[in-house]
Nucleic acid binder design. Structure first.
Lengths: 195, 195
DNA sequence: GTCTATAGCTCGATAGAC
DNA sequence: GTCTATCGAGCTATAGAC
């Protein structure tokens, strides 16, 4: 499979995130995951970075821009796993690799994954966002081929929700990463009838 | 199956929620779903009810107590669907009815379901909460029998996450309730090998 | 059980020096 | 790019009258 080359304006990250902005995003992501977007103040972000609020405002003009940048970064992480999977030659191989990548991403970042994209403020914007729709469309095509209609949409949503949701779920709280990974992958595969 | 009688202290709702408290909970749930817990102020809840903040504080002494009461009410709703399912005579029947109830609950309350229990502040408390653990344990037993170990925990978490997560997912945003229900139920069944 | 009024604080955001 | 200092608004929570 060939990685489709997209015009720069369509890519998730236009490639202009400075190092300072990256630190803000990382700190904000962590705090958003612990307290929610609405429960996180700019003062908390500044404290986490060891700077003042004014220094944070130098990087992003509003709190909303920070939230959007964080969501964008998360989306870019997901798209990177799609790019990686599409390097496989066969569709079956790409599909399997995407599942592996999704499971790894969900487990490695249990505390943060989805928290941003699930946030009410962000989630309301998601369906109309071009980047989000593109990423979801690529995932769906990789997971299900070109199976059309609502069935495909719901199945894709269920696989994504099952993997990332189960990783965050309190029921999986006690499990160590390796065990969780070992359980998630075969179950996700079976859901897609890969086994 | 017999509905296990539990001592009152172990039940989710000790049964002492006044009508006024119920109105606060309903308004708060709606606002939490739209703006997140941290993004909802007591002023917003009071406005939604057409009263002043002081009137709300008469029902609950802190905002945190409101959030906990809302989470408790959501949990009680889930437990009610378990009680209903356990009225079936056979385990297979109870399992099927629980799945139907879960799908219906998730679809009917797409906008609100999970939003509370997913909130970082609430979710952090969940694993240690006795009511939460009891509800999850009952679900797991109904869905999987007594299948032990981490496999059972992860499978239970995946089913729950898949159903409620897919219902909220932007990919399912355009679908009407009937279509969504019709897609969710068979897929959830298949995931549990019921078909 | 609802109101007005207010205390005390933190919020997001800006101005301007270095 | 970081700081201090500040603004006005909004926040949680309380006091006390009706």
């Amino acid at each position: 499979m060939s990685t489709a080359e997209l015009p720069d304006t369509q890519r998730v990250n236009p490639g202009t995130a400075t190092a300072a902005q990256g630190r803000v995003i990382a700190a904000a992501l962590d705090l958003f995951a612990r307290h929610g977007v609405g429960g996180t103040s700019l003062q908390m972000i500044a404290d986490e970075l060891g700077v003042t609020k004014a220094a944070v405002y130098r990087q992003y003009k509003t709190k909303e821009q920070i939230a959007l940048a964080v969501a964008d970064a998360e989306l870019a992480r997901m798209e990177a796993t799609i790019d990686d999977a599409e390097e496989e030659q066969s569709w079956a191989g790409a599909r399997e690799r995407l599942l592996i990548n999704m499971v790894n991403l969900a487990v490695e970042r249990r505390q943060t994954v989805g928290v941003i994209l699930m946030d009410p403020g962000i989630a309301r914007l998601a369906p109309k966002n071009a980047s989000f729709r593109r990423v979801m469309g690529r995932m769906r095509r990789l997971l299900l081929g070109n199976e059309p209609g609502p069935d495909g949409a719901v199945r894709t949503a269920m696989v994504i929700a099952a993997i990332s949701g189960a990783a965050v779920h309190p029921l999986a709280f006690d499990l160590d990463d390796d065990t969780l990974r070992a359980q998630l992958l075969p179950l996700a595969k079976r859901f897609l009838d890969l086994t």
